[in-house]
Computed example of a mutant assay.
Amino acid sequence: MGSSTPFWQALESAETGTQRPLEEALDALAFNEAGLIPAIAQQHDTGEVLMMAWMNREALETSIQERRACYWSRSRNRLWRKGESSGQVQQLYSIHTDCDGDTLLLKVDQQGAACHTGRRDCFYVALTETHAEVDQSPLVDPNTLYGNP
């Protein structure tokens, strides 16, 4: 019910074309206690939801500057440019926030597989009333993505 900060509340009733400085928007984002915000990657032309990852402010600023998706890797504890080791790059078309600034939506052009399993997207396990079912085959052997033949 409503936005969490005055910045987002003011935009709720703003007219199309209203602009605010980028720094103000970045300052108003709801990063969690680890300094991260969820980022959903979506194929720009088909609407296909590809993956969810985390961004810190530096990853977000890097993505905006480079026009290429850059995330924060919690396992590596460093910035991670999507495709840096696999070649499965995400060219950035746009970044949007949700209405209260606690989730990002990146519209990208995904080159090949988005998932580390070699699948097009990370959402390949369907949950039904009775079971979980893999409903998507890998596009490429994940071992070849990361140089482990």
Rank of each mutant, 00 (worst) to 15 (best):
H131W: 12
Q42H: 09
R81S: 01
R67S: 07
T97G: 05
L104R: 02
D141G: 13
A132L: 13
M1K: 12
T97Y: 05
Y93E: 14
Q43P: 03
Y71E: 02
L104V: 07
D45C: 08
R20E: 13
D27M: 13
W72T: 02
S86A: 12
S137I: 06
A30H: 09
P38K: 13
E133I: 14
W8L: 04
M55K: 00
M51Y: 01
E66S: 04
A25P: 07
A59D: 01
G35Y: 03
D102R: 06
C70W: 00
L60E: 08
A41R: 10
V49W: 08
G83C: 08
V134K: 06
E129C: 09
G101D: 03
I95N: 00
G2L: 03
K82R: 01
E61I: 03
N77K: 08
S63N: 04
L92W: 00
C70H: 08
N56C: 12
C70Q: 10
D102C: 09
D135L: 15
E23A: 14
C115I: 04
G47A: 12
D141M: 10
E61S: 02
R76Y: 08
D100Y: 01
I95H: 00
L79D: 06
H116K: 06
V134H: 02
E23Y: 03
Q88K: 07
L11C: 10
R78L: 06
T103F: 04
P142V: 10
E58K: 00
T130S: 14
T128M: 08
C122M: 02
S86Y: 09
P6I: 10
L79I: 08
N77R: 02
P149N: 14
L50R: 04
S63E: 07
G101V: 09
L104Q: 09
L11N: 02
Q91G: 10
T144M: 13
Q19T: 15
P138F: 00
R67E: 05
G2D: 11
H96S: 15
N143P: 03
A126E: 15
M1W: 09
A14P: 08
S85V: 13
A28K: 11
K82F: 01
Q42I: 12
G47R: 08
M51D: 02
R74P: 08
R74G: 10
Q90R: 01
L29T: 04
D121C: 14
L104F: 05
T97Q: 07
R67V: 02
P142T: 10
T18R: 10
D121Y: 06
E33Q: 11
A114F: 00
S86R: 04
A39M: 06
S3V: 06
D121I: 12
C115R: 01
N148M: 14
L26S: 08
H131I: 12
G35R: 05
G118C: 04
G17T: 03
F123M: 06
S94N: 13
